[in-house]
Simulated scan of single mutants.
Amino acid sequence: MKFKNNLLKQLVSDCIAELMPTYKKEEAAQMVFWLTEDFFGMTKSALLLNPERRLSESEMLSLHFAVKSLKSHVPVQYIIGKVEFLNLSLQVTPAVLIPRPETEQLVDWILQIETAQGLKILDIGTGSGCIALAIKQGLPNASVWGYDQSSDALVVALQNAKSNGLDVHFFKGDIFQEKIELDPVDVVISNPPYVMQSEKSVMQPNVLEYEPYTALFVPDETPLLYYEGILKQAQLLLKPEGRIYFEINEAMGTEMVALLNTWDYKAVHLKHDLNGKPRFISGIKQ
């Protein structure tokens, strides 16, 4: 793209216009403001207060290439390399899913319920570590573990623990291949893959083309595959009266209630997200 001049205010306007064939205006503007804040330390309000700020040639190039990536549907979070999750700033790379607002709601819900001291908590399929780290921040006296089958994801999670000064223990394994070697815990949490392959047609290109496929999708024939594997592990992992929490596919609420009942969980509770969709479920091990 060609810029009219090096005034940041004009560059922002040019970038938004360049992105509008691909994105709605509001979304394009939001992404450009994220870029200017991350690249140049200029918030939206600071930009309004400093309309004469000019960029160097190298700064203009960085903005140019970022907009080019956005036009190719690269998620803006991967371009700037980080995302805000509750009160945490987390590194994200294409090795991990970008944390969603729904998962923030899951963590908030858990923190409202799990108020005891000294809890032992396991996050299965930890990815960037967002759930485990936010839980540790909210429950500093808890012992928290994060488990994932991806070495690349665990590198990101460990870096996020370090940068946020949180003591969470991360380890690798595959729930379908081996028993999770850990003493019994009070709480198991998971936001596992739950998008059915038939749902690809309604998903955005930035998700389909760039976020890790194995962290998103499950076969249509076995949509509860990961939940079944985790519940099997939880038979030994969870203490009696231990609690389990899942984020789920909105189309699978009834099936998930039935699944937890099949595994003899009591007080099974299906909770809706902020959009009124059945998105979370919990149960207590008998």
Rank of each mutant, 00 (worst) to 15 (best):
E104A: 10
A95W: 09
I79A: 04
G118N: 14
V96A: 04
I80A: 04
K68E: 15
P94A: 00
K71P: 05
P99Y: 01
L97Q: 03
L70I: 02
I79P: 13
I79W: 02
V74T: 10
P75D: 03
L90M: 10
V67T: 09
I110V: 15
L90A: 02
K71I: 12
P99S: 08
A116L: 07
P94Q: 01
P101Y: 05
G81C: 07
S89T: 10
Q112C: 11
V74A: 02
R100I: 05
A116T: 04
A95H: 14
L88A: 09
H73A: 04
E102Q: 09
T115C: 11
Q77T: 09
I113C: 02
V74N: 04
L88Y: 08
A66D: 07
V67N: 05
E84G: 02
Q77C: 08
V83S: 02
S89D: 14
D108M: 11
L70R: 00
K68S: 14
T103I: 08
Q105S: 14
T115M: 11
A95P: 12
L90F: 05
G118P: 07
P99H: 01
G81Q: 01
I124V: 15
L119C: 12
T93E: 02
V92I: 11
V107L: 12
R100G: 11
F85W: 10
I110W: 00
I121E: 00
L111N: 08
I124E: 00
Q112N: 15
L119S: 07
D108I: 09
I110H: 03
G81K: 11
Q112G: 12
S69F: 09
K82F: 01
P94R: 00
E104S: 11
Q91H: 10
I110Y: 02
P75K: 02
Q77H: 15
P101R: 04
V107P: 14
V83K: 10
Y78R: 02
Y78I: 03
Q105G: 13
Q117C: 06
E104V: 09
V74C: 03
V74Y: 11
E84Y: 13
L88V: 05
L88M: 07
S89C: 10
L86S: 09
Q105Y: 10
G118L: 14
H73I: 01
L90Y: 05
K82C: 05
I80R: 05
